[in-house]
Every structure is written in structure tokens, then in C-alpha cells.
Write a protein that binds this DNA or RNA. Structure first.
Lengths: 235, 235
DNA sequence: ACCTGAACACCGTTCAAGT
DNA sequence: ACCTGAACACCGTTCAAGT
């Protein structure tokens, strides 16, 4: 029976599994990409890795750390994109390009919105990304406090927009029985039925809300912040 | 034994409990205030209400709705504060005062940051708050799309800052064995140990980060957005 | 050093039944 | 109309034991 150790037949049970931090994170990210945050459970992850649940605890102390590391892992690819950006003679334009790159990554992976920048204490790619953004402010005529606040503000705009978008759409949208436009349309309809005297603003913007693009919303929030920053820096 | 129905003695078991939407939400908020989002479970809530878990499902369809309604419930008090604001001849100043009021409420209740404005489809106080903010933009020389984007941007700044703050601080801070300044200080220390060549920005701002105030951070992010808005509105 | 199975102490949600 | 107890199908986490 010794041969079973090196050549297990089908249905004979598998060998002792062997993982690595890399494979744990790759599979965790795959799970998140395929079905969002609720899909990432230790049991589901263990099954994908072909091992037992408890073995994951050799790599991470708990679920929070798993999420932090998975997030930092994908921020690594975002960082690479940001480093590949051409760069210009305008630091504010460069800041905008970086923020847009980051936002695009969140559009691809909505679960990212809820976790990135939650703790830089992992010290990895999130911190490097923060540094990259901040370095642009070194080119502006600002003091250290203004620079700190400027980067916080830009990250805040990304997070604020991402959180707004990261909400799971209702299942009718997910399962494709109702598309996003229809969904927004229905929503807009309930707004149109509100009393115009009591809700003048809602009526003013309901047609803009109907069919709106999240990217436009993000871009203009970012542009307002950057316009304020430009003013502050006197450039 | 018939008297047991109207006068149950101590330790004899309680009468059939009777709730109301109001009491369900009040106790839910109390739980959230006392120990944050993880403390709000159906079992804990049922115990506070003196009844069984399943009865809560007569008032809400699921936990998401419970959280939505609890959030909207406290937004009601924020709305009242906002309506009590004096108001000025500058719509942008009024917008700022409203956003600050909202942010202060989140400082008092950190759990709020993660849930408010997540769905206005509850139609209640969140929508009224949105209307209140938006009405200020009607006083500005903007088109409907710009108004829609302006309010989204302001809400985004609040949410972005709130999320950043809403993170549970490490338990050493919660249990008081380490205060916030010490915690920030340790954190800053690890930044100071980074290579200054590789992390010039981090070194530039580390002293600002050390001991920084979340309110200042929020205020300056808000001011950048509002400065951009003022520029756009030509006021 | 790294993996396993089984257990523990929770969750949200459902349901048939009671009042 | 509103509440109950008990069950179901999950969770994250631990631990003694294996290799």
C-alpha cells in the first residue's frame, strides 16, 4: 500500500495539502471577484485550496488580516498601473490621473471600495500608493499640513464615491432580470411622485439622477476637490 | 393559577411580550451606540425587548432593513438639528454648516458612518436630509447636473471621512490601556523608520499625522470641495 | 514547519404553532 | 395581528493531534 503515498488514485482521498501565502491570497481575491465579500469564507477558501479550514490560520491570524492582505495584494497591481502613468508638468493633473486609475480598479472590483486604505499598517502596497499620491503634493506650494490634508481629501473622494457604488445592487439587477437603467428609472419614478413643493431639489435633479453614470459623479467630485487644491496652492 | 396571566411573579416567566416599531428601533440604536455594529444581533435585540428573536421579523424583513431603519431613525435627529440651523445669505456657508452638523453626529455615533445614505429608498429622513442639502444649491448659479454632482460631492466628503474614522480602533485603544495619541504616536514611529529616500512624502507629513485631529481633516477636505464649488458657481 | 478533523460558540432566518 | 420555541444552515475560531 506504500504506493498510495505518492500516487493516490481517484476517489482515494487527496494528499496532505500544501499552500503558500501567495496561493491563499490569489484564491481569496478570486472568491471576492467572483461573488463579492460575502463569498469569502474560510470554508469556501479552504475548499478552493483543497485543504482544511484551519490551515489558513497558519497564514493569517483572522479574517480581518485575510481581507487586509487580499486588499493589499490587488493594490499592488493598481500601484503598478499608477507607476506606469506618463506623468506631466502639472502635479494636479497627475494626482487626478492617479485617482482615476484607482477608481477604475474599484469599478472592476466593487468589494475593494469597502476595504482599501482601511489600514496602512500592513505597510505594503497601500502605503506605497499613499506615498505616490503624496509625492505630487511635494511639487505644489503648500505646507506639510496642507499636503497631508490634500492627500486625505483625494483619498476621501475616492472612498466616498466607492462606498456609494459598492453597495450590492438589488438581486433583480444582479440576476439580470432588471438592468441598471430600469432600476434607476423605477427609483427616479418614486422621486417624481414626491410633492414638488416639499422636494424642489429632488425634482430639479431627478432627470440627472435617472440614468446617471457613477464615473461622471466621481469625476466631478474629484474635480471640485482638485479645483480647491489648485486655488490653495496658488498654481 | 389564572392569576399568573395578569400578575406573573418574579422568576415565573414573563408575559407575552409586545413591541412596536418605535421600541425596536430605539433599542437597536441603543445597542449600536453602546457597542457598535457587531453588537446588534437579533438575539441581543430580542433580549433587550424581552421577547423572542422571531418577533422582530414581524417589524423588519431582515437585518439589512433593521440597519436601514435604525440609521434613518437617528438621521431624524440630525435633520432636526439641521433645520434648527440659523442660515445665512451664503448658500455655501449653509452647506458647510449642514455638512459639519452631519459629521458631528457621526463622531458621536461612529457606526453611523458605515450605513447612512446607503439607501434613500427607505424614503424617510435620509431623503429629507438630501433635499435639505440640495436646496442650498438651488441658490447657486448652476445647472441641474452640476447641482446633482455638488450634493453628491458633499455627501461623498462626509462619507469618505466617516469611513476613514469609523474603523474600530485596536482594542488597546478601546480598553483604554493606550490612548489615541499614544496609538498615533507608535504608528507615526514606524513611518519615521522608513527610508526617507523611498518615502519622502510620508516623512514630510509624519509630524502632522502624529496627533492629528479627524475633525480638521474633514473640515479641510470639505473646504476644498466647497472652494471648488464656489469657483464653479462664479460666486 | 505546516496541515487536519472535529468541536465550540455563535450567527441570520424560517416555520408551524400558539394567543 | 402579533408573538413563541425550536430548528436549519451557516459562520469564525480553537485545539489536540497528526506528519
Amino acid at each position: 500500500m506504500a504506493h498510495l503515498q505518492n500516487r493516490p488514485g481517484p476517489g482515494q482521498g487527496r494528499r496532505r495539502a500544501s499552500h503558500s501565502m501567495e496561493s491563499v491570497l490569489t484564491e481569496a481575491v478570486a472568491l471576492l471577484d467572483e461573488a463579492g465579500a460575502p463569498a469569502l469564507t474560510f470554508r469556501a477558501l479552504a475548499q478552493r485550496l483543497g485543504g482544511g479550514v484551519a490551515s489558513i490560520y497558519w497564514y493569517v491570524a483572522n479574517k480581518e488580516e485575510l481581507l487586509d492582505r487580499a486588499t493589499d495584494h490587488v493594490i499592488g497591481t493598481v500601484l503598478a498601473e499608477i507607476e506606469a502613468l506618463p506623468g506631466s508638468d502639472d502635479p494636479i493633473d497627475d494626482l487626478r490621473a492617479m485617482a482615476v486609475t484607482l477608481f477604475d480598479a474599484i469599478l472592476d472590483r466593487p468589494w475593494l471600495g469597502a476595504y482599501f486604505m482601511r489600514n496602512t499598517d500592513v505597510q505594503g502596497n497601500s502605503l506605497r500608493l499613499y506615498e505616490k499620491l503624496g509625492r505630487q503634493t511635494l511639487r505644489l506650494d503648500l505646507n506639510a499640513l496642507q499636503r497631508f490634508h490634500a492627500v486625505s481629501a483625494v483619498v476621501g473622494v475616492v472612498v466616498g464615491s466607492a462606498v456609494d457604488m459598492g453597495q450590492e445592487p438589488p438581486e433583480e439587477v444582479l440576476d439580470g432580470s432588471v438592468n441598471r437603467d430600469e432600476y434607476l428609472g423605477r427609483y427616479a419614478q418614486t422621486w417624481r411622485e414626491l410633492d414638488p413643493e416639499a422636494y424642489p431639489f429632488v425634482h430639479e435633479i431627478v432627470d440627472e439622477f435617472d440614468g446617471h453614470d457613477d464615473v461622471d459623479q466621481f469625476r466631478s467630485a474629484l474635480d471640485l476637490t482638485l479645483a480647491g487644491l489648485r486655488l490653495q496652492s496658488g498654481a
